[in-house]
Nucleic acid binder design. Sequence first.
DNA 1: CTTCACAGGTCAACGGTGTTGTCATAAGGT
DNA 2: ACCTTATGACAACACCGTTGACCTGTGAAG
Lengths: 237, 237
Amino acid sequence: MTERVVPPAERRRRRPTKQGVVLSEELIVATALRLIEEHGAEALSVRRLGRALGADPSSLYRYFRHTDDLLLAVADELIGRTLRDWRPTGDWRADLRDLGLRVHSGALGHPRAAVLSAYRVTGRVHEIQAVETILGVLRGAGFPDPEAVRVYHAFVDQALAFSALDAAGAALPKPARDAENAVWQATYARLPAGTHPNIAATARHLVADMRHSSYPTALEMLLSAAEARLFEIRGRA
Amino acid sequence: MTERVVPPAERRRRRPTKQGVVLSEELIVATALRLIEEHGAEALSVRRLGRALGADPSSLYRYFRHTDDLLLAVADELIGRTLRDWRPTGDWRADLRDLGLRVHSGALGHPRAAVLSAYRVTGRVHEIQAVETILGVLRGAGFPDPEAVRVYHAFVDQALAFSALDAAGAALPKPARDAENAVWQATYARLPAGTHPNIAATARHLVADMRHSSYPTALEMLLSAAEARLFEIRGRA
DNA sequence: CTTCACAGGTCAACGGTGTTGTCATAAGGT
DNA sequence: ACCTTATGACAACACCGTTGACCTGTGAAG
C-alpha cells in the first residue's frame, strides 16, 4: 500500500460504491454523527459505519488514516455547529460566560458525541477559529499575553471537562440516572448527625443542589477570579 | 451457565490454576493495577490479564461479571489509596488544594480506571467520607450552609471533571498522544498573523502552556473566588 | 476414610473490532 | 478511444469480550 489518504482538494474521481453511494469526507462525518446520536457512542465502528454508508469498511481508509482521525473530524464538526452563529458583544466577561454556557448546552444536546470528542485537540478549522476568538476576547479585555493564555487554557478545559462530565450523566440510561439522583435522598439525606454532622446539617441543601449541574457556578467563579486578576494587573500598571 | 460470580465471603474452595496460581479478587485487582502501571492503560484486557495471572481469561468471569466491574473494583482500590493518609491541617484553602491535587494525580496514575469511575455517584463509604470531610472544611472556614454546599459541588465536580479530562488524555494510545502535542507546534504555531492575529501573537505561550494540565490554575482560581466570597460574607456580618 | 456435590478452572467457539496488502475497475484527462 | 490512477472491494490477520459445556480437585459430611 502506498499513500492511501488523498487530500480533499485533489479528489476528483467521484466513483460510487457498489451500493451506489458517492462517498465524501462530509458524508462520512455526518453519518458517523448520526450513528452516534441514534445508537450511542459505542455504536461507532469502522465496520458499522461502512455498513451504514453502503460501502466497504476499508474504503474509509481512503479518507481517514485511522479511526482516530475520523473521531477528530466528528469533534470538529460539533465545535463548528456550536459556534456557528456566535458574535462577541464587547463585554469580555459576558462573552466568555455565553461561550462557556453554549459549549456546555451544546454538549448536553449531543451527549454521546460530546463525551467522545471533548477530550481531543483536533487542530482543524472550527477549533482554530474558537481558539482565535477566545484569545481575542481576553487580549481585548487587557490580559497580557501569558496571562491571556493561562486563563484561556483554564477556561476551555473547564468548559470541555464539565461538558463531558454532564454529558456522560445525560447519556446514562434513564433508570441509571434516576438511581443516581435517588442516592442523595436515600443515602446522604439519612445519615445520622452523630457520625456525619456536616452532611446531616446540609442535607436539605445537598439534595436540592446536586440535581443541577455545577458548571454555571464553577464558570462564574473562574470569571470572578480572572476579573480580580485583571484589576490587580491594571492597578500595577 | 448458571450464576457465575460468587460473593467473596462464600468463597472457600481455593483451587489453583493449571500454572499453580491461587486466584482471588485481591490478586486480580492488584495484578490489573500492576499491568496498567507497567505497560500502559491499553495493556489491560481480559486476555492479557489472564495471561499475566497464569490463568484462563474466562476464569476472571468467576470473580467479575464483566470488564466494567473489574475496572470499578480497581477504581475503588484507587480511591482508598488516594485518601488513606490524608489529614486536614486547619487551613481550609490549603486543605482543599491538597485534596484536589491528590485526586487529580491519583487519576493520572491510573487513567483508564479513572475515566470510568469519575462519572458515577457510588454512595459507598469512601465517597461518603470524602463528602463529609470537604463539607467540614468549608463550614469550619465560615461558609454558611447553602454557600458551603454550592462551593462543595463546584469543587468536587471540577476535580472529577478535570481528572477525567486529563486521564482520558493520558489513556490515549501513545501515537495519538504524541500527535496531540505536535498539533500545537505544527499547526497553531504556524498560523499567519494576518488571518489569526491572536494566535500568532501568543503562539510561544500557547506551545509552552498547553503541554501541562490547566487543573492547578483552574483550581487556584476557584479557591480565590471562594475566598473572595468568604470575605464578602464576613464583611456583611 | 470414603463419598460426592459443586466451585471454579479450562476449552472452544461466536461474533465483534481495527487495519492492511492486493486486486479490479471506472472515471477523467489526453 | 486510450491510459493512468484514484478509489472501492475483498480477504486475511491478530486481537478483543463473553459464554456454554465440560471436567476435576476440594472440602465437608457421613
